[in-house]
Design a binder for these strands. Structure first.
Lengths: 196, 196, 196, 196
DNA sequence: AATGAATGAGAATTCATTCAT
DNA sequence: CATGAATGAATTCTCATTCAT
């Protein structure tokens, strides 16, 4: 039945995300994925064609939920600054829940030869656009200084948050998420004091 | 001659950095490194013992120059904010010159299962400390707001700059370095306008 | 309906002949056959039981029409030499229409380790017998020199014609069939000139 | 040492020819080849890169000795007809000694998609040229009838002899080679009687 | 009568590493 | 110092076949 097929695929996704996130692409074998998913090795190939395609699908589909959360975060905010803080929160929360997956993504983000480079770039741009729109809104509304480059800043904020989140989870996993959000807010407004 | 040995070693370093940065650890073969360096495969083993040791040495020795430059940047600055800007500049300049190497480092930064984990962590902390000291100085001297966490911010600034640099080199390599420094300064002082 | 079943079977035959002829047994997958025939893979097994049985059936049934045409060619001829020429024509015409199938057959003709070995040998002998009978008639009637070995010559003529046909279709497909028949006739009478 | 490498390569060639000839491409594993050659599987890849390349090399280099023998046969003959008979003899003798190899070649001769198709076509044309030149000499010298197409006839003679040889070795291996040469000569002069 | 998801044994291929020279 | 032929364990990938629907 179609439902069975979908379920198997979903299970493989779940398991592959775990393993690839923990160990990276090179150290994870298709065998491991199959065993942990409780299916035969051939089944992985039946569903994804190759290990590389599995990862491509993983990245493309695994990042989509983050994009959705971020869209939702924007919808629930009135000002640009509020939206940006909500975006930071959404990203941090997502990464907290999918830490291993994020490691995988960050690890592959600047790779040049991978087949899944393009898939990643695509979703990434979708997410960066969401951030950029808020930055533009903030600049237009006078909430943010006009001399920032929204595209550059959006990319930087996205990765800043992601990598800060990874450091957070690696070094101080006990720290409450809101404190981290606060730190990032302050970091991006670091010079406030001296401008008063 | 000793010189020959050193030269071979240096050549292997150079080539390995390129390849590992472009393709990652798992996708780069010792064969490739040897071929591109113009030596026999055995020579790689003669010099480094194993692929993992090669990478370990690479990271440890390759990151040290960055630490040195950053120390120099601090020495040449009077205020903390000047020092932080000089540090950003130093990091960007280094990455511009060693783009592939940076990709390798960023890629390995959150991987726990690697032989060179400790070596990487060591140099990283050395560099982060340099940044943190300036942040602390800034806070103490009233140049920076007191509610930032210097350790967290130092780590975040280091990686923010690194990843922003990679995006810069990937998407807008023609952009002058000073503009990028400026963008990062503004990004970390984004809220200035509304505080006036 | 029976008609449906037959039609599916016939379609599988057609498609399998094409693919097996082009790529050989080892390089043709049951998947490919099913896809090109527009049926599910299970259907191939429903109809033929296994890949090997499919090929066995293919060879046995696919070669039978050639045997029939050759019998008909003999029936329409008065002299042995006329019959031999008609046989050549019949074989060439058949191959022209079933080029891929012929490649498959020729390819398997000297392989000993195949499941369909016997089936192939059987039809082959049937065809060779038809040719041999005409050679014997020719020898007995004084039309042909008495020192040829009819069995050897019959086998050789059969394969000679088949392989010449494949070369013809591969290198000079535009050449009219009658010219090829003529060339083969002359080839098997090459010494004529000097005996005059 | 280079000699060692060459020896290993030669041994692999020998063994691969045997196995591929007996079992065909699809049924012969690289493992088998390695085991029978007494080397590790990796060694096969070290020398040939892939199974397909091994076969390509095999065909290209394995057929060369036949070409050489045929050139020698021509050199030792005065008339065209004598040369043609010597060529038949040379081909038969070669095949008798390399029966399995010939099966491999014939089996692959009309395959379309193989990488080694070209390699085979190349050597084949070299051999066919040797035959064609004698046919042309025979036609020009009036030894042979002028209305044969030398290229067509050369190709046909080459394959006729090869396939006749395979039938000979399969069905009547005890028959002396000279008798087979005679049969082929008579087959290609079959019409002699009636022209008298 | 047909389907197609799942299987798993088997093959091809890769590559870090060794070692004799 | 350097080499590069050889290794073989580990991995990816293939595909004929099965079976529940």
């Amino acid at each position: 039945m179609v439902r069975d097929k979908d379920r198997t695929r979903a299970r493989l996704f779940e398991v592959a995300t775990e393993l690839l996130g923990e160990q990276g692409f090179g150290s994870t074998t298709v065998d491991e994925i199959a065993v942990r998913a409780g299916v035969a090795k051939g089944t992985v190939y039946y569903h994804f064609g190759s290990k590389a395609e599995l990862v491509t699908a993983l990245i493309a589909e695994g990042l989509e939920p983050l994009a959705e959360r971020m869209r939702a975060a924007v919808d629930g905010s009135s000002t640009a600054r509020e939206a940006l803080e909500a975006l930071t929160y959404a990203e941090l929360a997502f990464i907290q829940e999918h830490c291993a997956f994020t490691k995988l993504v960050v690890t592959e983000l600047w790779r040049e030869d991978r087949a899944w480079r393009d898939a990643l770039e695509l979703v990434r741009e979708r997410i960066v656009t969401i951030i950029r729109q808020q930055l533009e809104r903030g600049v237009e509304g006078g909430e943010l200084r006009p001399d920032i480059d929204p595209q550059f800043a959006a990319r930087a904020l996205f990765v800043l948050t992601a990598t800060a989140a990874l450091d957070w989870l690696a070094f101080e996993p006990g720290r409450p998420i809101n404190e981290v959000v606060g730190q990032i807010r302050r970091l991006t407004a670091m010079a406030v004091v001296q401008t008063v």
